[in-house]
C-alpha cells in the first residue's frame, strides 16, 4: 500500500500540494483528474520520489520515502519529457534501461512493445509523438512494475492506441499492480478506474468509488 500522509509542496511560492492524505492499494486503478496546473503531475512525481515534499511523507509498503528508501522499489512512470535515447531503436532503449535492474528478459521487452502496439526497428528520433508515447508506456510496464504512475498516458495517441492503453491498464490491474492515471479528461477515467480522485488547488478529494 502507498500511504500519502499530510504532504505539502510549494513551488515558486505557490502551494501545489495542500495537506494531501490518501491510501492507494495494490490491484486497483485510480484516476486522478483536475484542470491543468491543479497538482496532478506534482502528486505523481511526489509518489514516484522525484519531488521531495516540504512536509508530510509518502510511505510505501511501510517504508518512508526519502528516509528508509530513496525511491519506490519497483515503479513505472510516464510523465512529460521522459527523454529516451533518440539514437537507438525502441528495443535498444529498453535493453539499456533493463541493464540497470537486470530483472527483465528479452521476452519481457518484446512483450511490452507488442502490448503497446509498437513494432518498429526505426530509431526513436524518427518516431512520431504517438510512437514515443507508446515507448514511454512500454518502459513503464516491461519490468512488471508493481506501481504504475501514468500522467496523461493517452496524449498523442490515436483512438486505437487509446483503447490499447485502456486494455493494458486493465491487464496491469489484474496482475495486481497499483495504477494511478492522471488526466484532465474525466470521461476517459469513468470506465476503467476503481476510484476517481479529484484534485483542485492542491487539495485531493474522492469523486467516485466503485463497488468492490
Amino acid at each position: 500500500m502507498i500511504e500519502v500522509k499530510h504532504v505539502n509542496k510549494t513551488l515558486s511560492h505557490r502551494l501545489i500540494l495542500n495537506d494531501i492524505n490518501y491510501n492507494f492499494e495494490y490491484g486497483r486503478v485510480y484516476g486522478l483528474c483536475g484542470p491543468n496546473g491543479s497538482g496532478k503531475t506534482m502528486l505523481l512525481r511526489t509518489i514516484a520520489g522525484l519531488l521531495v515534499p516540504d512536509s508530510g511523507e509518502v510511505v510505501i509498503d511501510g517504508k518512508v520515502l526519502h528516509k528508509d528508501i530513496s525511491f519506490p522499489p519497483n515503479v513505472g512512470l510516464v510523465i512529460e519529457n521522459m527523454t529516451l535515447l533518440p539514437q537507438y531503436s525502441a528495443m535498444d532503449n529498453l535493453r539499456l534501461i533493463a541493464e540497470l535492474k537486470k530483472i527483465a528478459t528479452e521476452e519481457d521487452m518484446k512483450t511490452a512493445l507488442k502490448r503497446v502496439g509498437l513494432d518498429s526497428d526505426l530509431k526513436v528520433r524518427k518516431f512520431s509523438l504517438g510512437m514515443k508515447q507508446r515507448l514511454n508506456i512500454a518502459q513503464a510496464i516491461f519490468e512488471k512494475q508493481t506501481v504504475i504512475l501514468l500522467d496523461e498516458p493517452t496524449n498523442a495517441l490515436d483512438e486505437s492506441g487509446v483503447q490499447l492503453i485502456y486494455q493494458l491498464i486493465r491487464e496491469e490491474k489484474e496482475r495486481g499492480a497499483l495504477v494511478v492515471v492522471a488526466t484532465h479528461h474525466e470521461a476517459d477515467l469513468q470506465e476503467m478506474c476503481d476510484t476517481i480522485l479529484g484534485i483542485s488547488e492542491g487539495k485531493l478529494y474522492e469523486k467516485k468509488q466503485a463497488a468492490d
Partner: peptide, 15 residues
C-alpha cells in the same frame, strides 16, 4: 535533473 537521468533515477540508479 530534467532529462534522461529521470529514467535512471526512478530505477534506483544512485544519484
Amino acid at each position: 535533473t530534467h532529462g534522461y537521468g529521470k529514467i535512471l533515477i526512478i530505477r534506483n540508479y544512485s544519484k
